[in-house]
């Protein structure tokens, strides 16, 4: 029996279980990042009294290392706020918050890049600001920043390996568990790396294809 069969194929259930947890954490973190990023961005741009708060949060999320933030959310938040109450939650929360800081700035750049005239054309037709934002500003912003959003998702996937440190049983955690059982890292870690590459590659390729297709269709990028 080769090492590949013994260490990888026969352990595929464990590794795939880990992969499933990784995918789950990343998807939740991504959703948090998008909602959080957009919220922070809109507060920063349009809610004057809360603007300093948004700026501080954005800068804090962007400027602290993900590992520090993970520890902070895992061990400080429960003391301060009584939540999160599981390592799993702390994992996606820390990943999501960090990316929300980056996405807030991405969204802001996108929104500020929309020509003022596009909004004015809406106002001139009697459209209220919220409608203009929803129908004119946001779709164009999403199209423009789509590549950055996809990129941010790949950052989340790669950062997610750190949550194994707080015992969330993701792919990295399961891989290290196997390594520690057999003391044979070559095959297990190589396959783990390959699985991450595959995941990131699939996500970024699918995202890029979709974004390019939409952008070409609307004439926002060179065909």
């Amino acid at each position: 029996m080769s090492n590949w069969e013994r260490l990888v194929w026969n352990q595929r259930g464990v590794l795939l279980q880990g992969l499933a947890v990784t995918v789950e954490v990343c998807l939740i973190a991504f959703a948090v990042a998008i909602v959080g990023g957009l919220t922070l961005c809109l507060i920063r741009m349009h809610v004057r009294p809360l603007r300093p708060v948004a700026i501080v949060l954005i800068e804090f999320f962007r400027a602290t290392p993900i590992f520090v933030q993970l520890m902070w959310v895992t061990y400080v938040w429960p003391e301060l706020f009584g939540w999160p109450n599981s390592f799993f939650t702390a994992g996606w929360l820390a990943l999501g918050l960090q990316s929300s800081g980056y996405l807030a700035e991405t969204f802001r750049a996108g929104i500020e890049g929309i020509a003022r005239g596009h909004r004015e054309a809406g106002y001139a037709l009697g459209m209220p600001p919220l409608l203009v934002f929803r129908r004119i500003v946001m779709p164009q912003t999403l199209l423009t920043v789509a590549p950055s959003i996809v990129n941010q998702f790949t950052v989340i996937v790669k950062s997610s390996t750190l949550i194994s440190v707080i015992t969330v049983q993701d792919l990295m955690f399961q891989a290290m568990k196997l390594v520690n059982v057999w003391y044979e890292p070559i095959e297990i870690l190589t396959v783990t790396a390959a699985l991450y590459i595959l995941f990131v590659f699939l996500v970024s390729t699918a995202g890029k294809l979709l974004a390019d297709r939409l952008r070409r269709r609307y004439g926002l990028a060179a065909a």
């Binding site: 020509a115 596009h118 054309a121 106002y123 001139a124 037709l125 459209m127 164009q140 926002l220």
Partner: peptide, 30 residues
């Protein structure tokens, strides 16, 4: 404002909507 149609120097069409989409957006939603 609905009673005043405005045409701008820079056209300001919305690039993510078709020509017809641009034209019917306000009649539908406003």
């Amino acid at each position: 404002r609905r009673d005043l149609g405005m045409v701008f120097q820079q056209f300001n069409l919305w690039p993510h909507m078709t020509v017809l989409g641009n034209v019917i957006e306000a009649p539908m939603r406003v």
